[in-house]
C-alpha cells in the first residue's frame, strides 16, 4: 500500500470537510442526548425536515438554502419547544423517560417521515447553489465549495454553540441540568425551562444541518434513518455532553472514512467508523473529550 502525499493531503482535507458536516448533524444530539438525557432518535428526521424547508424556499424563491435555514431556524426552535413540552408532560413529569421516550421519538421519526412523503412524494430532491459547482485548487489539494461552505457555516455554528454554552449563564445551566436538577433549582433556575430551550436549540441546529445535507447530497424522506447511527456515534465517540468532543469526534470519523475510502476500499468505511465507536465504548466509555 502506497501513500502518495497528494492523496494523503486530499484525504485529510476531504475528511475534515466531511467531519464539519457530521459535526453539524450531530451537535443537536450532543445537546439533547449528551446534556439533557433526552434520547431524541428522531433528530435525523428533523434534519430531513430542514432539508425540505430549505428546498422549497430555494425552489420557489431561489434563495440560498443555507442562508434560508439560518433565517428560518427560529421556526425549528419553536417546533423544538413544542416537542419538548409534549415530551415533558408525557414522560419526564411522570419519571419514565428512558425507554418510553425512546419509543416516543421512534414514533415521531415515522410520523415526520410519512408527513414528508405525503407532502413531497418519494422522489429524491436536490438544490443547486451558486457555489455547487465551484472548486478551489491549492496545489494538489481540492476544496469543493459544495462541502467547504457547509463546513464553514457548520464549524461556526458548532463553535458558537460551544461558546454560548460555556460563556452564558443559561449555557452553564444547560450543562448542569442533567447532573442535578434539584441543585439547579436551588440556584434559582427552572430546569424544565432550561431543558425546553436547550432542546429547542438542538432542533434549530437540525434545521440548519438539513440545509447542509441537501446542498451536499440528494434527499428523500426516509434518508434520516441512515443518520441515526452516525449522530450517536459522533456524540458518544467525542464524549457525552462535550461540544468540542462532538467536533473532534466528527473530524475523527470523517477522516477515518476518507482514509478508508482512499486507501483500503470504501466498502469498509462504516465498519471502521463503527468499529472505532465500539472500541471507544469498550476502552474509554467517556469518549475522547468526555468529562
Amino acid at each position: 500500500m502506497e501513500f502518495p502525499t497528494a492523496l494523503v493531503l486530499n484525504a485529510i482535507i476531504a475528511g475534515l470537510l466531511l467531519g464539519g458536516f457530521y459535526a453539524a448533524v450531530s451537535v443537536g444530539i450532543s445537546i439533547s442526548f449528551g446534556m439533557l438525557d433526552v434520547v431524541n432518535i428522531a433528530h435525523p428526521a428533523f434534519i430531513i425536515l430542514g432539508s425540505y424547508v430549505a428546498y422549497i424556499v430555494n425552489e420557489r424563491m431561489g434563495l440560498d438554502p443555507i442562508a434560508v435555514s439560518v433565517v428560518l431556524s427560529p421556526l425549528f426552535f419553536v417546533l423544538g419547544l413544542l416537542l419538548y413540552r409534549i415530551y415533558y408532560l408525557c414522560f419526564e413529569k411522570r419519571g419514565q423517560e428512558s425507554l418510553r421516550g425512546l419509543a416516543f421519538f421512534f414514533g415521531i421519526l415515522f410520523i415526520t417521515e410519512v408527513a414528508l412523503v405525503l407532502i413531497f412524494g418519494v422522489d429524491y430532491r436536490m438544490v443547486q447553489t451558486a457555489y455547487s459547482e465551484t472548486t478551489w485548487r491549492l496545489g494538489p489539494v481540492d476544496f469543493p465549495m459544495r462541502l467547504v461552505v457547509p463546513f464553514l457555516v457548520s464549524v461556526t455554528m458548532v463553535v458558537g454553540v460551544q461558546l454560548f454554552l460555556t460563556h452564558t449563564f443559561f449555557g452553564r445551566a444547560v450543562l448542569a441540568v442533567a447532573q442535578d436538577q434539584l441543585a439547579l433549582r436551588l440556584m434559582g433556575v427552572n430546569p424544565t425551562r432550561v431543558k425546553g430551550l436547550a432542546f429547542a436549540l438542538s432542533i434549530a441546529t437540525a434545521g440548519v444541518a438539513g440545509a447542509f445535507l441537501i446542498v451536499i447530497q440528494p434527499v428523500q424522506p426516509a434518508l434520516g434513518r441512515e443518520y441515526i447511527g452516525l449522530v450517536f456515534a459522533v456524540c458518544v465517540l467525542g464524549g457525552m455532553g462535550s461540544i468540542w468532543g462532538t467536533l473532534l469526534g466528527a473530524f475523527v470519523l470523517g477522516i477515518a472514512e476518507s482514509f478508508t475510502s482512499t486507501f483500503f476500499g470504501p466498502s469498509w468505511a462504516p465498519a471502521v467508523s463503527f468499529g472505532l465507536l465500539l472500541a471507544a465504548l469498550a476502552f474509554k466509555p467517556s469518549g475522547l473529550l468526555g468529562r
Binding site: 452553564r172 445551566a173 450543562l175 448542569a176 442535578d180 441543585a183
Partner: peptide, 13 residues
C-alpha cells in the same frame, strides 16, 4: 454539586 462541571462553572451557576 455538579460533578462534571469545573469549580468555576459551579460558582458561576
Amino acid at each position: 454539586l455538579f460533578p462534571r462541571l469545573t469549580v468555576e462553572e459551579n460558582l458561576l451557576l
